[in-house]
Amino acid sequence: MTRFTLAASAALLALSAAAFAHDYTVGDLVIDHPMAFNTAPTAKSGGGYLTITNTGDTPDRLIGVRADFPKVELHTTEEKDGVARMMHVEAIDIPAGETVALEPGGLHVMFMGLGGDGFDVGEKIPATLIFETAGEIEVQFSIEERGAAAEHDHSSHGMSN
């Protein structure tokens, strides 16, 4: 192979990787793999998941999410007497130098008021994440097959399965 062919191949590979990349950066924060699972057509709400890595020396906080739904909140899941309950939280702390996972059974984004229009595999949900220090960033939550979580290794995203 000539140097030109190698360089062209490397450039094409980099473009292909960028086309499939699913992370975003704002300030010192890296938001990785925003996603939600498909829901039943009659679902009234759906959860959104992602990881946020703070590469800086200063803590930040996720203070809100905007999306085209009647209500979008930050939630956590708490278990009491063997019953899991979702609770609204005002903000999610993102300590300096750490990664925070929003994942099933823990912290997550709750999209409410789906109104009989559930999440379909392959769909993209545009949203704006609002951080106290870093500001706002537009992201897209990819809707994935619920069973795909077991097949898709999220370990590089800081999420546990």
Rank of each mutant, 00 (worst) to 15 (best):
H22V: 02
N54F: 02
D117L: 13
A150K: 13
T128M: 04
G105Y: 05
I125Q: 08
L12R: 11
T58A: 15
E78M: 08
V139T: 01
P34S: 10
A11W: 07
L62C: 03
D93F: 05
E132R: 12
P59N: 12
L15S: 12
H88D: 14
A150R: 14
T77D: 09
G46V: 00
G47I: 01
N54H: 05
A148T: 12
E144F: 09
L74K: 02
E123D: 13
A150I: 11
K71L: 14
E79Y: 13
M112K: 15
K44N: 13
F69W: 10
M87L: 14
A127Y: 07
E138Y: 05
V30F: 05
A14D: 07
A43I: 04
T77M: 09
P59S: 10
F4G: 06
R146I: 12
V83Q: 07
P59G: 02
E103D: 12
E73L: 13
N161Y: 08
A149N: 12
S142E: 13
L29F: 09
H108E: 06
F69Q: 10
A17W: 12
T53L: 02
F141N: 03
A19D: 12
M110N: 14
M1E: 08
G158C: 04
A21G: 04
G122L: 11
F131G: 00
E90L: 07
D28Y: 06
L114V: 02
E79L: 04
T42G: 03
D68F: 06
D120W: 09
I63H: 06
L74Y: 07
D81L: 12
V121D: 06
P34Q: 01
A96R: 07
G48A: 05
